[in-house]
Amino acid sequence: MEEPRFQARALNEAAQAIRNTIVGRLHDDGLNHHDVQFRVKTPESAAEKLARRGQDGQLKYPGGLARLDDLIGVRVILFVESDIDAVAIALSSQFICHDDEDKTAMMRKNGGIGYAGRHLTLEVPAINPPTGCRDYTGQRFEVQIRTVLQHAWAEFEHDIRFKGSSGDNAEISRAFTMASTLIELADQQFVNISDILKRVQAEGTIEAAPESKRLDAGTLQSVLARAFPAYRNSKENQYDWMVHILAANGIDTVSAAEDWFGSMDPDRVAQIMQYRFSPGQVRVADDLLLQSLGESYVDATKEVGSDTNREHKLRSRLRRLRTDRDGD
C-alpha cells in the first residue's frame, strides 16, 4: 500500500476547519476563553519525527504519517484553570477522544513544579461529524489546554531552552522554577476571584442597572448575573452578541430583559439539555429563548453573528427541547 504523502495545504484547511469548530463549540457552551490557535507540522518536522528510533533501534512510528497524531496541533488558551476540565469534556463530546492526559495534575501529584498541561488526542468522527469538518472525517489532531499564564510561561521557556544558548544554565533553571511556582499561585487566585464573583452574584449584591436604560453588553451581564447566579460568566463579546440576538426578538431595554429572564426556569432547560458541565450565562439565555420562541427564534437569529452553522445547531437543540416537552 502506497505511503500517504505530506499534503500541507490539505492539512492547513483541515486545521482551520477544526479550529473554527472548536471556537463554535466553546461559544455555544459559554466557555470563556482567551484564544484558540492551531499549527500544522512542517514536512521537515514530520520527517524528523518519523526517523526517530527507540533504544532497541526500531522506528518509533513504523506506520509512517498515518501514525502521527500531531500533524495538526490546536491550543486552547483559557483565563481560569478551573475551566480546563469543562473544555476537555466539551471537546471529547464533539470529537472521538483517543487519549486524555492531565500531565500537570500528574506532575503536581508527584511533587513536581512547572507547567505540563492537559493534552487530548482527538479525531473527527465519521458518524455525525461537526458540520464544518465533514470533509475531514478520520483526521486526528492533538489539543493542548492551558491558561494564559501557563501559555506565557511555556512559550518563554521554549524560546530560552530550545532556541537559546543558555537553556541549561542552573541560574536560569532556578528562575524558571520560581516563576512557575508564582504562576501556579496566580492561577489559583484567578480561580478564587472567579468563585468570589459567583458568590457575590448569588447573594444579589451586584447593583442593578436602571430598568429604563437601553440594553448593552454591560447591563445584560448584570441582568443575567441576577437571573442565573448559579451559572458561570460568559466571554465578554458573547454578551454583546446576545444583545443583538435579543434586539432581533424585540428585546432592547433592561426592563424587557429582566422580565424575560426573571420569569424563566434555567434549571428546567439544564435538565432537558443535560449539560455535562455548568454552561455560561449566555448559552443558558440562548436555550431559554429557543425553548420559549421556537421556530420564530431560529428564523430571527440564525444569521446573527459569524457562526455559519448556527441554524443547524439551533434546530438540533430545538428538537431536543420539543422531544422532552412531547414526552411530558
Rank of each mutant, 00 (worst) to 15 (best):
H151A: 02
R39N: 06
L26D: 00
H312F: 04
D159C: 06
R134T: 15
D69K: 15
H33R: 09
F277C: 03
E207V: 11
A51K: 03
R52S: 05
L185M: 03
R276Y: 14
I183R: 00
G24N: 11
R276W: 14
W241P: 05
G164Q: 13
C133T: 10
A256N: 01
T137V: 09
D56A: 07
A8G: 10
G294T: 03
R9G: 15
A14Y: 12
V298Y: 08
V40W: 12
C97I: 12
F156P: 04
D299Q: 12
G30L: 02
D307A: 01
T177R: 14
Q37Y: 05
E142N: 01
E48D: 03
P279V: 12
S92H: 05
D85R: 01
A126K: 15
L246S: 07
T137K: 15
F156T: 00
Q201A: 13
C133V: 10
K60C: 04
V87S: 02
D328A: 09
S82H: 09
R108E: 15
E207R: 10
I272C: 05
Y136G: 00
F95R: 07
S165C: 11
L293P: 13
R232P: 00
A116F: 11
M107P: 12
D240L: 02
A225R: 11
D265T: 15
E207I: 07
S165N: 13
S263I: 12
N110F: 02
A225E: 09
G64V: 11
G30A: 04
E123C: 14
I272Y: 10
E295Q: 06
L71M: 11
E13L: 14
C133L: 08
A247G: 10
R75I: 03
S263V: 10
A300V: 01
A179S: 13
G167P: 10
A90Q: 09
A300E: 00
D35K: 10
V87D: 13
L65P: 14
R268Y: 09
Q144W: 02
F228V: 08
E123N: 13
K163H: 10
S316W: 01
N192L: 14
P43T: 15
P266K: 03
G280Q: 06
Y136E: 00
A217T: 04
S165H: 15
S173H: 13
H119Y: 11
F156R: 02
L31S: 07
D187C: 09
F6R: 14
L91E: 08
G117E: 06
T177I: 04
E2L: 02
A285W: 05
I160V: 13
V76C: 08
